[in-house]
Design a protein around this nucleic acid. Structure first.
Length: 367
DNA sequence: AAATCGTGGGG
DNA sequence: TCCCCAAGATT
């Protein structure tokens, strides 16, 4: 790639970013990095972890809640993991929250509360992979790291008509980004490409007429930029079925337990429920209930996970508080809001007792 | 290295 | 309704 083209691309992107950048709660506006305003590595790190495979709009209320409750990495290190899981509930990919805690502990205990300021140093932190280490290095410390996320893959695969399918094309794209990124404003450049991908160079119907790179985009020149990036076909999602049992006490409390520490929804809370299997018998029976009771079928909820679809038959029964396993507990309606309930479990409870849990699901924000 | 790991919004 | 997929990491 010619030196000239490198700077043409970077200049066009940075010029566009200066005028059209998004304003986000964790972001330091363009140019201020080089001035007095230093980004807070803690906030950049926290936002980057939350933003992994998660939309900006979904992250905003969680980010606000976390920085209010835990203003710095030391506060997060001191916090009980259960509190962090409760605050993360609803955001998904719960191993991120567990790694967030591990990372905070490590930084507080072994690094004196100071974040590493290099891509290599950051890469060693729990939950921080190739993308996130580059993003923090560039955005928080203005290091010339090649930040490659889904947006960058899309923008660059179009710009250079990368025909290798993802994820195999990652190396190739990483090289292209390394060649183009400006060493004087790497943080702004990374955010510029991501903003472009989020606002103009979208997966479908990209707004090419407004794009600062329209004169140099090879995919646009070809005529169908939305054909990029080329991606490997996805396997179809199998269906799994199960049953959940919402036990309600006289005072409205609901019986909960904690999921195992590994696997799906690890360590999160739930009403008692069966294993989720691929069986097709369609037998929705209350015989699988954890204990005897007048189990009434409420409804079947559908929930889509990353690699399978769940159809969960929800039963409800009014129960008395006796002979429950020791580590199960009753959660009163007012405490239910702050339990570490994943969305699928909120849905199940809502299906069983809509009145008592109206505030549980809507608005779908953290409390 | 392919599988696993959530959720909600948009077209 | 269905499909896509979002500032990916881990094993």
């Amino acid at each position: 790639m010619a030196q000239n083209q490198r700077s043409v691309i970077a200049d066009a992107l940075l010029g566009w970013y200066d005028a059209h950048h998004r304003e986000l709660p964790w972001r330091v506006p363009p140019h201020q990095i080089a001035r007095a305003v230093q980004p807070d590595p803690y906030r950049i790190w926290l936002s980057e972890i939350m933003l992994q495979q998660t939309t900006v709009e979904a992250v905003k209320p969680y980010f606000a809640k976390f920085v209010a409750q835990w203003p710095d990495v030391t506060a997060l290190a001191v916090a009980p993991e259960d509190d962090i899981m409760k605050a993360w509930a609803g955001l998904g990919y719960y191993s991120r929250a567990r790694n967030l805690k591990k990372c905070a502990d490590f930084i507080a205990a072994d690094l004196g509360g100071i974040f590493p300021d290099t891509e290599e140093g950051l890469r060693t932190l729990p939950g921080v992979g190739p993308y996130t280490s580059a993003a923090i290095a560039a955005i928080a410390f203005n290091r010339p790291a090649a930040v490659v996320d889904g947006n960058v893959e899309r923008v660059f695969s179009r710009l250079f008509t990368v025909t290798t399918p993802l994820p195999a094309a990652k190396k190739e794209i990483h090289r292209l980004v390394s060649d183009v990124l400006p060493h004087d404003r790497p943080g702004d450049f990374a955010q510029a490409v991501m903003d472009l991908g989020a606002t103009l160079c979208s997966p479908r119907r990209p707004k090419c007429m407004l794009c600062p790179l329209k004169e140099m985009c090879l995919a646009l020149k070809e005529g169908e930029p939305e054909l990029y990036p080329i991606k490997a076909a996805k396997p179809e999602k199998p269906v799994r079925r199960g049953a959940a049992f919402v036990a309600v006490r006289h005072d409205g409390a609901i019986l909960l337990r904690k999921r195992p520490g590994r696997g799906l929804l690890a360590g999160m809370s739930e009403p008692p429920n069966t294993d989720w299997t691929a069986r097709q018998d369609g037998e929705t029976s209350a015989t699988a209930a954890p204990f005897e009771g007048d189990w009434q079928y409420a409804s079947t909820i559908k929930h889509v996970f990353t690699h399978f679809e769940l159809r969960l038959d929800v039963f409800r029964a009014d129960c008395v508080d006796e002979n429950m396993p020791q580590d199960w507990w009753w959660s009163l309606p007012e405490t239910l809001l702050s339990e570490a309930l994943p969305s699928v479990m909120k849905k199940a409870i809502e299906a069983a007792i809509p009145a008592a849990t109206k505030r549980l699901l809507s608005p779908a924000k953290p409390n």
